[in-house]
Design a protein around this nucleic acid. Structure first.
Lengths: 145, 145
DNA sequence: TTTAAAGAGTCAACAAAAATGAATCTTTTA
DNA sequence: TAAAAGATTCATTTTTGTTGACTCTTTAAA
């Protein structure tokens, strides 16, 4: 049972962007801050952009920002979109050759459990994993003109 | 997000044993039935025995049987015991070097979701994943002297 | 209209984890 | 006491995930 580091990084990038909502942040900056190689991080960011969580502005003076306010981004959604392979066991796929398939109910039971996992994560918006200090900052900024 | 095939096999072995509660089943037989190598399956069975789900009787005429009736074995318990590494993300471990650690609440959120996953599996006893036909057989056998 | 700053994509190398099975050892009971 | 069962160890192979170099494309500022 693992979430790929890819997904882990994605969440951290989002948290970082949420903590810097008032400005554009470059991949360069994040890669330095998190001590991850730029090109590696790029792939993570890319997927975040393709999935509509982040807006990437190219060209001089460009950078990244959240596509929506952090209150409207559910952690569950991010994990679902970033984890490409959610087949918990072989028999989730079409080419299963498990000899119990006909009779066993395992697949449904595991699928239900996976839903429970995501349902739990869906309840949590990005703004709630940011940490108190950063969340407070978010409130202050909202009041500013 | 994956469960290892190891765990998958473990569940299948248990289902098979539950479907043959009235007799001893050898690893040999299971390996033939599931088309898995004997020595590989052995490791799975071994772990099942060490965790008290299965009783292994050695020597001539020996074999395997469930240590408890299938109604008393929760799927969640099996998965928990078979999956050795339940650290969803790096920061679950002690040596985490995530630079957000101090402030971010991700760890707790993911841990809660993982609990929800297992809570869902804990509700399901082995007897419920066996398939209707086999379960019916179980009832009949219970009534026999 | 050029240039530099940004993201996008491709590719190959590397590392870690999981799966597999051969060979050998131990226990036990018919 | 021999044969049938599980137990253990080890090495190999396969798969998956991680990493980063290199090159391409876009775009806004100078």
């Amino acid at each position: 049972m693992h979430i790929t580091q890819h997904t882990d990084y994605a969440l951290r990038v989002l948290i970082f962007l949420a903590s810097n909502e008032h400005r554009l942040v470059t991949i360069q900056e994040i890669s330095e801050r998190f001590e991850i190689s730029r090109s590696h991080l790029m792939k993570v960011v890319n997927q975040l952009i393709r999935n509509g969580f982040v807006e990437g502005l190219r060209g001089k003076g460009g950078g990244l920002r959240l596509a929506r306010p952090p209150q409207q981004i559910a952690v569950g959604d991010v994990v679902r979109k970033m984890e490409s392979d959610l087949a918990l066991v072989e028999c989730f796929t079409d080419q299963s050759r498990c000899l119990l398939t006909a009779t066993c109910q395992l697949k449904g039971v595991l699928a239900t459990a996976l839903e429970a996992f995501f349902a739990s994560l869906d309840k949590v918006p990005l703004s709630e994993v940011m940490g108190p200090a950063q969340r407070a900052l978010l409130h202050v900024l909202k009041r500013m003109p």
